[in-house]
Simulated scan of single mutants.
Amino acid sequence: MARVYIYRKFERFWHWTQAILIFYLALTGFEIHGSYSFLGYEQAVKSHRVAAWMLLILIAFSIFWHFTTGEWRQYIPTFSKLKAQIRYYTVGIFKGENHPTRKSPKSKLNPLQALTYLGFKLVMAPMLIITGLIYMFYRTIDANNMVIISDIPLETIASIHTLGAYLIIMFAIVHVYMTTTGETPTSNIRAMITGYEDLETDDDSSKATDTK
């Protein structure tokens, strides 16, 4: 085992800021939906829009960061050990078996994680973003109050947006549970705070340094 610098500063900032914004968007979104009342409808709408724009800005910076650093390659799934990874999470982890894959700065995600996060980035997040923007700009402010997209009812857009919200919440619940499956229940969370994680590595991997 060696202490390895695995999560860079922006990566940690992006992760926690995104988590906070998604959580806040869920709270305000369900209040807008009428599930409960806390801020009040008008304030919830205003707060939801501000948080949505903040998330879009964060996503734009994260896309730029992923492509300029090459970190986008982390999300390319490999299927060679996918079956073994699924078996580990469903059976092996409860029997104390060894993890079928090894984590490193160049391979932070196991095959199942890479596939899941790719689905988050290509399906769930775009579903929420696109429907949210359409809902926000469904009507343009002009003399005619013209409907931009008349072929798609506003109720349908809202339903798809709500479905995306439920999928994101399910993803978050599973994600939080999976963070407890490291060497200790808190080791993965601690690594995302400090950037360092104790890993079984080769000598070369243990020499990883803080690259901003």
Rank of each mutant, 00 (worst) to 15 (best):
G29R: 08
H99W: 04
A84R: 02
R73V: 06
A143T: 00
I6A: 04
R3E: 11
T68L: 13
I169R: 00
L167H: 01
G164R: 03
I76A: 05
H175Y: 14
G70S: 07
G70C: 07
S206H: 11
I130R: 04
E197V: 05
L133C: 06
M178L: 13
E155T: 11
F67S: 04
A125C: 04
F10N: 14
W14I: 06
K121H: 10
I22F: 11
H33F: 14
M146Q: 13
K103A: 02
I86T: 00
H33M: 10
E183A: 12
V147H: 02
T201M: 09
L115K: 00
G164Y: 04
E183S: 12
D204A: 11
S150M: 09
G40E: 06
I129G: 07
E200D: 12
F64S: 01
F67R: 01
L115Q: 07
K95F: 09
L154A: 04
Y5W: 08
Y75W: 00
T181C: 07
T179N: 03
L21R: 09
R3K: 14
T162D: 13
A44E: 00
A44G: 02
N145S: 15
E31C: 10
D151F: 06
W16K: 05
K81D: 06
T162F: 14
G164T: 01
E42C: 06
L39N: 08
Y138L: 04
K108F: 06
A143N: 04
V147S: 08
H66C: 07
S47Y: 08
T194C: 08
T131V: 02
P126S: 02
L112G: 14
T181N: 07
T90F: 15
L27K: 04
V45H: 00
K121S: 08
A172H: 03
L122C: 14
Y166G: 10
I141E: 15
P77H: 11
E31T: 08
L56D: 06
I63F: 12
L122V: 13
R12P: 04
Y36E: 07
G92A: 08
Y117K: 05
G96Y: 06
Q18G: 15
T194Q: 11
T194L: 08
K121F: 09
S35N: 10
G182A: 10
Q18A: 15
L39H: 06
V123W: 03
F10H: 11
I169N: 03
G70M: 01
Q74R: 06
V176M: 01
T131C: 11
D142K: 11
P111W: 00
N188L: 06
G34Q: 13
G132L: 01
L128D: 09
T209G: 11
G34T: 05
L56G: 13
A26H: 06
L27W: 09
R8N: 14
